[in-house]
Write a protein that binds this DNA or RNA. Structure first.
Length: 551
RNA sequence: GCGCUCGUAGCUCAACGGAUAGAGCACUUGACUACGGAUCAAGAGGUUGCAGGUUCGAGUCCUGCCGAGCGCACCA
């Protein structure tokens, strides 16, 4: 019996009680969750449904819980249902009902954990979107790891996801980039507002090598070549380093295209039609304050040039025209002031800012080595790069480390910790569990013990029950992590599952010892091990981290 | 000054409004002639920044205060 099945059974029992006693069934929820209590004394599962609805149904919660319990005890697979505290209902499954889960997990394989909680939703997920004026730095890396994990999660929950990268190849920062390349090529110092760092020299040298006549051209023409080719080289590098990080996008959207195709003008015209535009002091404004922004925003500057926000407006409308139900923006903390204007923009465009657009803000990442903050990169000088992090701890550890924390908090990553091959390193702890099971399954094959027919009632050891319970939670963890946009829940779950497995392993011998004949208990435990391996692999897969069979 | 985010064990961090606030590390004490000891068991460690409020129930929601980070352009 899975938690989902149990939850339906509880709901059915509750409905039955309400019908029998003539209570108002409209106070009942459509679905309810059964939870794994922290304290095992509180049963395999618990539900607070009686507490939730008693007041509105006009009955005492403990009485209601008792009536539900009475019905549940006659449900097949439910061993006991007890009232506890103010009206909790603590449930226990019989071992056979619980044990069958192992088989269904193994049979579901890579699909176990997938669901349809977000079925039918089309989601545009924009993340990283770093400027093409330099290599990806640490701020963007957090989103690369979290964003890609979230994309995988949303897909596992049944959504159709487009991973999108907005490429800011338009505007003044590109000119500064081009001037910096030109200066570097001519051996001149970096312009005052330009980009420094060794990578500028590298790229300038590449462009010079590819364009022999370049030094003879007048500055404006040379700068144009540096602009065009520099952006292209940077773009290629960014894509490659993300690919090496295991992150690939479905759409690389070029800001420049919005200006070239007239999309910006069209967007402004549409917003003007909708009545949200006004002219003031020669500039064209969007009245975002009508929808909660703290000031109105300029779309066209008084010199007639579009402001950056005009591109955002056109870009948002473009996303919507592609038919997404939700556009998710993942932005760094330095863009926190951006949330209200993007939401207002969506509202101006006639969308529901609470449903059609989500703006997630991720706080900063600090790297620490030997207790000292790491701030500089050899190559970029002023910031730490994606490649620095990967060089230091590897892709698996980097992705796991970045995806393991709630993005609302700033985090300190200790580079020494994440390279350690010991169990204080969470990614190794989880991967080790997977490798250990893989090894055990290899041994089982070597000695010729197979899973055979599962006798689920044999999985009646306390630690087996706890492990089955943990495995059963996985689909709900995936669904809630997707719904809440919080991939770190998966990582925390895996760490907990790994611990639960090790405790099982310590208490329950899986393979026959010495000359011992294999029994159905050995075979049942192999089912359990295979199920655990499946869940660990699926969970790590959602985070974009490998599940090694040997370490 | 205003806005957003955060404040939980010595450290790094968990905890869809639920029961006795958890885990890893560090510290103390144990378990290796058998499936990977990269493991496990036990102990100690907390006024969840402070003060009120809502609720059957608050780390979680609301208000105020204190502290930290990040923002507050006709820049991108």
């Amino acid at each position: 019996m899975t938690p989902a099945e149990l939850s339906s059974a509880v709901l059915a029992a509750t409905r039955g009680v309400f019908a029998d006693r003539g209570l108002d069934t409209t106070v009942l929820p459509d679905t309810l969750a059964v939870e794994r209590p922290r304290n095992p004394d509180h049963g395999d599962y618990a539900t607070n449904v009686a507490l939730q609805v008693a007041k509105r149904a006009g009955v005492p919660p403990r009485d209601l819980a008792g009536w539900i319990a009475e019905r549940l005890t006659s449900t097949p697979g439910v061993k006991s249902a007890e009232i506890a505290g103010p009206g909790f209902l603590n449930l226990r499954l019989d071992a056979a009902a619980a044990g069958r889960l192992a088989q269904s997990i193994v049979e579901a394989g890579p699909r176990y954990g997938h669901g349809e909680s977000l079925g039918g939703q089309r989601i545009n997920l924009e993340f990283v979107s770093a400027n093409p004026t330099g290599p990806i730095h640490i701020g963007g890396v957090r989103w690369a790891a979290v964003g890609d994990a979230l994309a995988r999660l949303l897909e596992a929950a049944g959504a159709e996801v487009t991973r999108e990268y907005y490429f800011n190849d338009h505007g003044a920062q590109i000119d500064r980039f081009a001037r910096s390349l030109l200066a570097a090529a001519k051996g001149e110092p970096t312009p005052e507002d330009g980009y420094a760092g060794a990578y500028i020299g590298e790229i300038a040298a590449k462009i010079v090598a590819a364009n022999p006549g370049l030094p003879d051209l007048p500055d404006p023409e040379a700068q144009e070549i540096f602009r065009r080719e520099g952006v292209e080289l940077m773009f290629t590098e960014v894509k490659q380093s993300l690919k090496d990080f295991g992150v690939e996008f479905d759409v690389y959207f070029h800001e420049d295209s919005l200006h070239e195709t007239g999309a910006v003008e069209k967007a402004i015209a549409r917003l003007r039609e909708q009545g949200h535009i006004f002219d003031h002091e020669g500039a064209v404004w969007l009245r975002t304050t009508d929808f909660g922004d703290d000031k109105d925003r300029v779309l066209l500057k008084s010199d007639g040039a579009p402001a950056y926000f005009a591109g955002d407006a056109a870009y948002y409308l473009d996303k919507r025209s592609r038919g997404y139900d939700v556009a998710i923006y993942m932005l760094g903390a330095d863009h926190s002031g951006y949330v209200s204007r993007l939401k207002a923009l969506a509202a101006c465009a006639g969308d529901d800012p609470n449903r059609n657009i989500e703006v997630l803000i991720g706080q900063l990442v600090n790297l620490v080595r030997d207790g000292q903050p790491v701030r500089m990169s050899k190559r970029a000088g002023t910031v730490v790069l994606l490649e620095d992090l990967v060089d230091a701890i590897g892709v698996d550890a980097a992705r796991y480390a970045l995806a393991r924390y709630n993005t609302d908090s700033t985090i300190d990553l200790d580079l020494d910790l994440w390279t350690r091959r010991t169990n204080d390193n969470p990614v190794f702890y989880v991967q080790y569990a997977h490798a250990r099971i893989s090894s055990l399954l290899r041994n089982a094959a070597d000695v010729g013990v197979g899973r055979g027919e599962l006798r689920p009632e044999l999985l009646d050891h306390e630690k087996e029950g706890l492990l089955l319970g943990a495995l059963g939670e996985f689909p709900a963890v995936v669904a809630s992590a997707a719904e809440l946009r919080e991939p770190h829940r998966v990582a925390r779950y895996l760490e907990s599952l790994a611990g639960t497995y090790h405790r099982f392993y310590d208490n329950c011998r899986v393979l026959p010892m010495g000359d011992e004949e294999p029994t159905d208990t050995h075979r049942a435990r192999l089912w359990l091990c295979e199920a655990t391996r499946t869940v660990l692999a699926n969970g790590l897969g959602l985070l974009g981290v490998s599940a090694p069979e040997r370490m």
